[in-house]
Simulated assay, not measured.
Amino acid sequence: MTVIKVGTRNSKLAQTQTKQVLDQIQQFHPEITFELVPYTTKGDRLSHVSLQEIGGKGVFVKEIERALLDKEIDLAIHSLKDMPALLVEGCQIGAIPKREDARDCLIFHQKGMTLERLPKGACVGTSSLRRKVQLLKLRPDLEIRDLRGNIDTRVQKVLDGEYDAIVLAMAGLSRIGWLEDEALPIEVLDVSDCLPAISQGALAIECRQGDMNVLHLLKEVHDKETADEVTLEREVLALMQADCTFPLAALAQKTSSGYQLDAMLATADGTCVYARVSGEKTQNLASQVVEQLEKQGAFGIR
């Protein structure tokens, strides 16, 4: 029996979503045995420090990619939004499974609360610049405070009253089972109010470049529509040479006539600038949306 070693972050969410993907693969390849190899990444070790201070995108994947290149593991499963636009040399994304809900949501301390009903000056927890600027666009009176830690820790902090509300991704809550708790006070944020992070809700299965044995195992779980959408979003990331220090968002969606790409980047004073483009094919849509943002004075482009 073939044993495949799988790298994953040593967190409940990472291991849960990794096992969910491996279960899908095993439906097609019951002859394969998967062995999880957990890693505590720099981003996990420094969970009390802002991501902007410790290197931005890549801090959750670098150690795992090194293990992949050193052949300690055969593949790795990541949240795609944690991955830089340019992968380390020698690695490739072998498959992208079907995307979960890409939206953000608010979780409240008080039941029955909404973003609109939050009292003036309410404390909202998020360490994401993207979320911060979009929330302040809607409610400039809010106090935004940093929030790090795993999902369970963050949810417990708001339930304990350390924050009036926190912002989390729907995908993570779904995968870890929090959405099954009907008593959890949640408000889903429409993408017109809070455009999600690039690739939010999508996972990436990473392997060594050209490893045909592993690539063969992954083809059944690859979702072409998701891959087309997130590839387009990641083109925006690459064109902007951006990382998590940028208040950047993008969402590509397949439509009946082609593709729609929405993007947001804040100006130097924190104003949210939005752009939307569409076309029958994905080609040139990313460069068009970046050009629109640049014309409106968005921060950090070239």
Rank of each mutant, 00 (worst) to 15 (best):
V3E: 15
V3L: 14
V3Q: 14
G7D: 05
T8G: 11
R9M: 15
S11E: 11
Q17R: 13
Q17P: 02
Q20S: 14
V21Y: 00
V21N: 10
I25C: 10
H29I: 06
H29T: 04
I32W: 08
V37A: 13
T41D: 10
K42V: 09
L51P: 12
I54S: 13
I54A: 11
G56I: 01
G58F: 06
V61S: 13
K62G: 09
K62Q: 15
I64C: 07
R66L: 12
A67K: 07
L68D: 04
S79K: 11
S79Q: 13
L80D: 15
K81V: 12
M83Q: 12
P84R: 05
L86I: 14
Q92D: 10
I93L: 12
I93N: 08
A95P: 00
A95R: 02
A102R: 09
C105T: 07
K111L: 09
K111W: 04
M113Q: 15
T114F: 07
E116V: 12
T126A: 04
R130P: 00
K132G: 00
R139I: 07
P140K: 03
L142N: 00
D146T: 00
L147I: 01
R148F: 15
R148I: 01
I151F: 12
I151V: 12
D152E: 13
T153R: 13
Q156F: 10
G161H: 03
D164M: 00
A165C: 05
I166S: 06
A169L: 03
L173V: 01
S174V: 11
S174N: 11
I176K: 08
L179W: 01
L179H: 05
D181N: 13
E182H: 11
L189I: 10
D190L: 09
V191R: 08
V191D: 07
D193N: 15
L195S: 08
P196Q: 05
A197F: 04
Q200L: 12
G201D: 03
L203E: 12
R208S: 04
G210K: 08
G210E: 07
V214S: 11
L215E: 06
L218F: 03
K224P: 07
V230I: 15
T231G: 12
E235K: 10
E235N: 11
L239Y: 04
L239S: 04
M240N: 06
F246W: 12
L248W: 02
A249C: 06
A250K: 02
K254N: 04
K254E: 08
K254C: 05
T255W: 01
G258K: 03
D262E: 10
A263H: 04
A263P: 03
A266R: 01
D269S: 12
C272L: 02
V273Q: 11
Y274P: 01
R276I: 09
V277C: 02
E280C: 07
T282I: 11
Q283D: 13
Q288P: 02
Q292L: 15
G297P: 06
G297Q: 06
G300I: 05
R302C: 09
